[in-house]
């Protein structure tokens, strides 16, 4: 298809604009596109109608991750220094745009920011199951504590106070070890 302005070159830019019912439509070669843009007739800066780089994808992740992408943040953000992950250097905005973190450290650097989205995906933020060898003591103790606390609640509910007292002591001892 040829450019419908100069009629000489192959059209490479297909432009459709509809602002409140005022429609413009062009098929342009790159030269004509550049000229028309310079004249202000067309606007090839995709981001401008939506302000600053909000893509459909980031909108998608925004809803999925509950993290506001660029335009939703305050106008002052450009001047404020954003927090970056010390290992991979990503910001929370970049993470929410990609939908994936940059490294394991991101989960620690942005723990608070990521928690809502993780809860939304899994319905839980409490891991259950295997753990690496080096976490053996910590995790086994954590699991044991969780189990004791659950049993304590049960005992209180059933008004078994003697059992509850014993469980409470056991929890105290276990937490004191740390």
């Amino acid at each position: 298809m040829l450019c419908n302005r100069c009629g000489k070159n192959e059209a490479v830019v297909f432009y459709n604009e509809n602002i409140n019912g005022y429609k413009k439509s062009y098929s342009l070669c790159s030269d004509c596109a550049r000229e028309l843009e310079a004249a202000g007739e067309i606007n090839l800066n995709f981001t401008s109608p939506f302000e600053e780089g909000e893509s459909l994808l980031s909108g998608l992740f925004e809803s999925m991750f509950g993290i506001p992408s660029a335009p939703a943040l305050s106008g002052a953000k450009r001047t404020v220094k954003e927090k970056r992950c010390p290992l991979c250097g990503l910001t929370i905005r970049e993470i929410s745009e990609e939908g994936k973190v940059g490294c394991a450290e991101c989960y620690r650097s942005f723990a608070d920011e990521l928690r809502p989205s993780i809860t939304r995906i899994h319905g839980s933020v409490h891991h259950k199951g295997r753990f690496p060898l080096r976490f053996k003591n910590k995790c086994e103790k954590g699991n044991r504590l969780e189990d004791l606390r659950r049993r304590l609640k049960e005992a209180i509910k059933n008004e078994e106070f003697e059992r509850a007292a014993a469980l409470r002591d056991e929890i105290r001892n276990l937490t004191a070890e740390a």
């Binding site: 394991a104 295997r130 954590g142």
Partner: peptide
Amino acid sequence: AFDEKLGYL
């Protein structure tokens, strides 16, 4: 890579 709350990262 592991976190007690989040599991394997």
